[in-house]
Design a protein around this nucleic acid. Sequence first.
DNA 1: GTGGTTGTTGCAACCGATTGCAAAAGCGTC
DNA 2: GACGCTTTTGCAATCGGTTGCAACAACCAC
Lengths: 341, 341
Amino acid sequence: MALAKKRVTLKEVAERAGVSRSAVSRTFTPGASVSDETRRRVENAAEALGYSPSVLASGLSTGRTKLIGLVSNNFRNPFYLEVFDAFTRTLQSRDLRPLLVNLSEQFDADDALAMLRQYSVDGVVVASSTLPPAFSSAFSDAGLPVVHAFARHSEIPDVNTVGIDNVACGRMAADLLMARGYGQVGFLGGPQTAASTADRQAGFLDALPAGVRAKCPVYHANDYSFQAGYAAMADIIARGVSRRAWFCGDDAISIGAKAALEASAKSVPQDVGIVGVNGMDIAAWQGIELTTFRQPLQAIVDAVVERLAQLMEDPDDAPRAIRFEPQLIDGATLRQRPKNG
Amino acid sequence: MALAKKRVTLKEVAERAGVSRSAVSRTFTPGASVSDETRRRVENAAEALGYSPSVLASGLSTGRTKLIGLVSNNFRNPFYLEVFDAFTRTLQSRDLRPLLVNLSEQFDADDALAMLRQYSVDGVVVASSTLPPAFSSAFSDAGLPVVHAFARHSEIPDVNTVGIDNVACGRMAADLLMARGYGQVGFLGGPQTAASTADRQAGFLDALPAGVRAKCPVYHANDYSFQAGYAAMADIIARGVSRRAWFCGDDAISIGAKAALEASAKSVPQDVGIVGVNGMDIAAWQGIELTTFRQPLQAIVDAVVERLAQLMEDPDDAPRAIRFEPQLIDGATLRQRPKNG
DNA sequence: GTGGTTGTTGCAACCGATTGCAAAAGCGTC
DNA sequence: GACGCTTTTGCAATCGGTTGCAACAACCAC
């Protein structure tokens, strides 16, 4: 059976329909000039033969492939499964195809750039809060439209970005902890090299009252992951450091930190409060119910894809930074009211 | 700056190196006949111009694109993030490129097939335990090499499959519960339509002693997810059904079921035992520590990609089923020894 | 019937590579 | 220096489409 069926070509359809190859091509090109009669015959022939045009071949002459590089280095953070889900659906709904790139030591930025150029992708989405803007610039410098999701926010960006303003998010966290009456707070960020962590830390410390800030310890988990959060908090406990509430790098770190606290008989939120960032599905699991700042994922993804579509039209459009507000999900890991309330 | 750089072509390299286009092509074709002198000059020219060959163009004449469709409908099960991570890395290490397809109501099997043909993919990986073999057959019928990962195991498969034998896994679960001295057991599977659930259920019931089997209730969560597991177990509890141990559809369902039990003041494993399937990272989180049957993920992925590579060489090779053994991860959700031990 | 307009069609060149074939070059031997 | 053999090279056709251009047909108005 499976005699690797040869692909049906334009030419065969043309012969069967008794028209020229151009006529067939035009039938499948929206907006081209074809008479009803010709179109009908072509469509019948194509149908009968099971013809579908080769994107490779058409891409060769038109220069468009509808291929979008989806680049990430966060394949261990459960939040990113939701990210990939949203991106693939949204791209698909626009008739764009995600070519997935998993960055690692074995496959770095240069490799990614080289390979995405080889495939003549129409654009690139970088989905990462840890990669620096310079990473995305490499793509735009090579003439590829690129939008960086979850990137560091900047008023005058040199690459297109979409995401929350992490500095503002840090401030919101500080305000929240103060409003809830926590006097002793700490910061447990993600990797020190991550732009998102640096920004959240800056905003957080900035918005704390001076007296509180002076005594606010700052730690960093070496990864945006449960295990890193657990290890970091276990280490903090072992050092005898104790705070009434922690602002953690993201949900995965938060959940790890919570587990470490509970493992040493501290209860959350009675003894220690925790607030995270992301609002991933797992954060809402019964038994976890993390208080966290949700990133409006679908809105971000829609904006990324929309912006990318614009750039594909006009590649020289100046870089723009699109910003969304994080939304507080009031879970069960922060107490509701001030003690003195 | 970003004047969408025009792509550097073979021709330009040829002109700069002062050789014919064939010579350039041969330089980049492993095993072709080129003199050292020519190769050197071509490489210099290519380097200077920043040339990288267009996969589209070469794919057009060679018929190979190195594109692999990675098709799944499990974008909500955290285990699949690990699956995607492993597949993308493994494909990349072989110089193959994953074109990700997210199946849904909006984008179904026919759409997937049509689009993967348009892109002339060299092969397809179906990663799903819920899709039926017929789904994958559609690809092989169209002449595309396809390997179905986590598929239903069959001795005489009509499509290439790799995964654990779910019937055997069900038996192992039954044996395990018996060995641990659980007399009253229940089955809480995934969606009834999922091949994996049907097989695990069959094996499980089959291996139970007749007396136990007769009293073994069978339930189904309507999804392989935490929420579905939670809801199903909550429902079971509400109906007043109570068992000393449950074999659950997968890890996500198990963790949900555990949360539901704990929410109604049953402790795991003291009051009720739970064993799952998959061995995803989250199952090992402190505070969860699920007892579960691990799928040897990297081994499965390696086997899938290796098999796919073989099929790309010889598309008419008869379908083969490659099977791996699930491995017990002895967590903290089953008691260790029989009461009467 | 003539002239102008609009819409449809096919020819042929082109997109950026690969590859069979034959000519040319390189080399060793007598 | 001539001969035969192997290696290297370029020509030109090909992969499956798109598209500018010119030819042509159809239609309308005068």
